[in-house]
Design a protein around this nucleic acid. Structure first.
Length: 170
DNA sequence: TAAGTGATCTCT
DNA sequence: GAGATCACTTAA
């Protein structure tokens, strides 16, 4: 097991909740800087009413149905870019929203600070595209990771909005 | 607490 | 084509 390991497709192909949990403590790399991921949310499968994919495939969410390890970046509220990494097997729509890193809290602040916009959408997480994720050997113990309901998804109804699919490092 | 902002989706 | 919605942030 090497340090500074760039996460590949095989990592992101795992079940979405596993990927979400394990992304906490990994490092987002951008413009020569490395940021430890501290907050993520899982969006998993067709049935997840909080997920863009719950009403089927569209032009926007197409990448969620594709291969794991690609970026899903979309604009919300007319001004905020949201950064997600596609997870799970092909044809299964799932992704993990990266909501915060050490020093930058909030998904829109994150993309703004790291100059990430929709031009990254559908691209691979790899050095070739200038945005990727590394395992730098940091292990965050279970008792330091808090699970809470996802933010801003009340429209999905109680069953889905209350699922504890948000992972935050304390 | 509410406005800002515009792409996307769901009807006509 | 029109209207509603929205995985948020900031200023008040």
């Amino acid at each position: 097991m090497s340090r500074n390991n760039i996460l590949q497709k095989d990592f992101f192909e795992q079940p979405t909740l596993v990927v979400a949990r394990d992304l906490v403590g990994k490092f987002l790399v951008r413009n020569g800087k490395k940021f430890m991921i501290t907050e993520v949310e899982a969006y998993d499968g067709f049935g997840d009413k909080a997920s863009h994919a719950s009403r089927g495939e569209t032009l926007r969410n197409k990448v969620m149905f594709g291969e794991a390890g690609r970026w899903y970046v979309y604009l919300v509220y007319g001004m905020h870019n949201m950064l997600n990494i596609v997870t799970g097997p092909e044809k299964y729509p799932a992704a993990v929203l990266i909501r915060g890193v050490e020093g930058i809290l909030g998904p829109a602040r994150l993309t703004k600070a790291l100059e990430i916009d929709r031009s990254m959408n559908t691209r691979k997480a790899s050095p070739e595209t200038g945005l990727w994720i590394e395992d730098r050997g940091v292990v965050i113990p279970e008792n330091r990771i808090k699970r809470t309901p996802r933010v801003g998804v009340a429209y999905a109804g109680p069953e889905w909005s209350q699922k504890p699919w948000r992972f935050v490092a304390e």
